[in-house]
Write a protein that binds this DNA or RNA. Structure first.
Lengths: 234, 234
DNA sequence: ACCTGAACACCGTTCAAGT
DNA sequence: ACCTGAACACCGTTCAAGT
């Protein structure tokens, strides 16, 4: 009735061999489509089941619970970065580092509705996540840092990318005008409450204050790379 | 029966003047206690009502919905940073910037269970949030950057703090050993899948790989400050 | 104005039963 | 082994009714 064409509708019990309607993979793909189209909150087990033309309880034979579904989605996102950029020795450490950062950001950007979940779970999940940092390690190893320095610098850079991506994901569109909002908010403050902010925003507002995520990311990256170069004399 | 001592239990209708049991403030304080003690998921409207000894629907006379409760909590957190550090002209830009960063991080750390919500909502909320960046602006204004440079540098630094705090919040304890987990994960990789990572982690693991959030934050901050100093010749 | 009870339309998950 | 139906213990929120 809801979906007249769904396979096996109205029959129950074990499907014949080769006729399974469900698999972990198929479930995760359907879940990702829901999240991309309608957001995290829309992804409920019951909703997921109906889009698959299946009883809600069937899902539990392939994934233990809802948290496992989200964990699986996070893995999908990380799997989508990795090995894209094979080792490239033709290029200096800074270029390689910048490339790794872009790849990482782009993977997070591919599914903005999932980003919050990814960032919250990043620590938690599987081997897939760990491979993803290889290019960062390689670039800084080539630059000649010590293991400890590499470890700390990579952590810092990835923290920046996470924070940046969080901000980017929380705004749907690619570009947005900060000006009206920020100007408005600042002008509502009691005078003297944030004088420097008021002054700076006033000056920027005159030129038309706006923010491009691409530029912001580039600025952050190169500030970070300048820090590395300065501190380690590169 | 559930709470024999709750005020006004069993009576309904409008309370007499001066006898109101509820207020936005009281509701938010109770909500924060629940979040701190049991996490975001435990904070449901029905749960909140019972801890206040009140019908769930009473809450809706003070806050329009659950999202507004969380938005109110986010405001509380930001209100907890601000004006702690009054302008201090005795000190150089770098010290002032570092101080602002610590204050910001500490406010986020005060309610780890709320951090994810705060970071997800940070863009969305009220004037309270905007005041919070004043010390950052002041420090870099004093350093002599242009308005545009200040704007971009502050964005970058705050992105780092957000990403860092996300990682910190997602791990409950103050310190944790990365070694067993990270070493284990890396050793499970297929050989050659992440050679540099494997090498670095191997070396660090020998010394006992561990991570202190306080040190990590300091490292990130000073890398960032080095970048500012190098780029702008300070 | 402020609080309440009953109701609606949802959830995730367990359990026993089908094939 | 895999799928199902009914049931349990929850949700957020609307609406009409109390004082």
């Amino acid at each position: 009735m809801v979906n007249a064409g769904k396979p096996g509708a109205g029959r129950s019990g074990r499907p014949r061999a080769g006729e399974e309607r469900l698999s972990r993979q198929a479930i995760l793909e359907a879940a990702l489509r829901i999240v991309d189209a309608e957001g995290l909150e829309a992804m409920t087990m019951r909703r997921l089941a109906t889009t698959l033309g299946v009883n809600p309880m069937s899902l539990y034979h392939h994934l233990p619970n809802k948290a496992a579904v989200f964990a699986g989605l996070v893995e999908l996102v990380f799997a989508g970065m990795g090995n894209s950029a094979a080792a490239d020795d033709e290029v200096d450490w800074r270029t390689e580092l910048t490339g790794a950062a872009h790849a990482y950001r782009n993977a997070l950007r591919a599914h903005p509705n999932l980003a919050l979940q990814v960032l919250a779970d990043a620590a938690g999940v599987s081997e897939v996540v760990v491979v993803t940092v290889e290019p960062f390690y390689r670039a800084l190893d080539r630059a000649g840092l010590t293991p400890r320095q590499i470890f700390e610098a990579v952590n810092t850079l990835i923290d920046f990318i996470h924070g940046f991506s969080l901000g980017e994901a929380s705004v749907r569109s690619e570009t947005f005008e900060l000006a009206p909002d920020l100007l408005e908010r600042v002008s509502k403050l009691q005078p003297g409450q944030a004088p420097t902010l008021a002054k700076i925003v006033g000056i920027l507002g005159a030129d038309g204050l706006h923010y491009e995520f691409d530029d912001g990311f580039e600025t952050g990256l190169s500030l970070f790379a300048d820090g590395i170069a300065a501190r380690f004399g590169l």
